Simulated assay, not measured.
Amino acid sequence: MYKISLITGDGIGPELSESAVSVLNTINDKLDLKFDVIPLSAGDKALEQTGKALPDETVKIIKNSDACLKAPVGESAADVIVVLRRILDLYANIRPAKSYPHMPALRDDIDMVIVRENTEDLYTGKEFSLGNSAVALRIISENASKRIAKYAFETATQRNSKKKVTCVHKSNVMRVTDGLFAKSCLEVSKEYPEIVFEEMYVDACAMNLIRQPESFDVIVTTNLFGDILSDESSQVVGGLGMAPAANIGDSFALFEPVHGSAFDIAGKNIANPSSFLLSIKMMLDWLGTKNNDPLCFAVGQKLESTIFDLVKSGVKTKDIGGDKTTSEFTHEITNHLTTN
């Protein structure tokens, strides 16, 4: 049995968490893969109730689980996910972007993964005031750059795709920091002669994600650039409602939807749970690899193909052109998981 910690979040987070638990319970009951799901508090509500957005007890339980699922949290998001990434050394942020049928994607042949360095760059929060100016420290290290580059190349070797890694940076302007990142990626590329390696400035990459998104396979980049480009790539394939993400370290991983807590639609039962459920698929793949468990892979593939087939048949939530509520769409998924 896998022990899964679940941060239930704020805004639409609790609704999405209910959907996730419903799917995991169905897998428990019908597909012989067992989960013990432990709901946890973190985010705005936790801050209001305990004075800490990320309570110590929540961290303790997460550390003792096999993996963590995190629903969106509110304004305190940085005090939750950024801190967890640092505490658990979740250095690789993985955000796939794939065309699904009958979605408002730019093309129907997009299949890329953005591999984003997760521990450095401006997101360390090292900022201070200096007179009338504000200063932020941008930290890029050789070790972290090579570590994320290696992860990107390993990802490319495992994908049934173009076998290409695109290193995205801005070394023509930030010659020291991005220069080090680009140099580190180039050095790692020499260990993978079977993988095509290219470099691209971040502004050119942002343009080409619109102009020719089908040309990308694996993009590796720094923390800030990866955050921005992954949101863009999600929109290119139809929106954040279908965008999962993983935060992966050497021994632990956390999985979450890319989108935020969407307080404007909270409680209306119209949020699209797909991104969170596809994050469960990523979790199953990770557990399967870590534990050499082929059932995890099989169930993960079944979950993704169920979502794919439903969307293809026109069963969709409002944000992607359908009329199903969150609970109705979830019910369709659980039904198809057990009948297909």
Rank of each mutant, 00 (worst) to 15 (best):
M103P: 12
F128I: 12
N93P: 08
L90Q: 02
D79K: 11
A144M: 10
H102G: 14
I61P: 10
I94P: 03
V59I: 15
I140G: 03
G74R: 04
S76T: 15
P101D: 10
I94Q: 00
P104K: 05
P101F: 12
S133P: 12
P101N: 06
R147Q: 07
P104H: 07
K98G: 05
V83L: 08
R95E: 02
A144R: 02
N132H: 13
S145M: 02
L90F: 01
E117Q: 06
V59S: 00
S99W: 06
R147A: 01
A144V: 01
I94V: 15
D66Y: 07
S133H: 14
A105C: 14
T124D: 00
D111F: 06
R95Y: 03
T124R: 13
K60F: 14
A78G: 08
L90Y: 00
K70V: 03
L106V: 15
M112L: 15
V83C: 01
E142Q: 13
D109C: 08
A92C: 12
I148R: 03
V80S: 01
I139V: 15
E57S: 14
A71G: 09
A71T: 09
V59H: 02
V115G: 00
S129E: 13
D89A: 09
V113G: 00
I87M: 08
L84C: 09
P96M: 01
A92R: 04
K60W: 11
E127C: 11
G131P: 12
Y91N: 01
N143M: 11
I87R: 10
G74T: 08
R86G: 03
D66M: 05
S99G: 11
E75K: 14
M103N: 09
L137M: 13
V135R: 11
D89Y: 04
I114D: 00
N118Y: 00
E75L: 10
V83N: 07
L88K: 04
I87P: 09
P104N: 11
S65N: 10
A78Q: 10
L84F: 06
K63S: 14
Y100R: 07
A67M: 05
L54Q: 05
K126M: 15
G74I: 08
T119C: 04
D109R: 08
R147M: 02
R86F: 09
T124V: 13
I94K: 00
L137S: 12
D56G: 06
A144S: 15
D111L: 04
V113T: 13
I62L: 08
G74M: 05
Y100M: 15
Y100P: 11
G74A: 09
N143T: 15
K63R: 14
G131T: 10
K70Q: 13
Y100N: 06
K146V: 07
Y100K: 06
L69H: 07
A144I: 05
E120Y: 00
Y123C: 04
K60D: 14
S76K: 14
L122D: 04
N64Q: 15
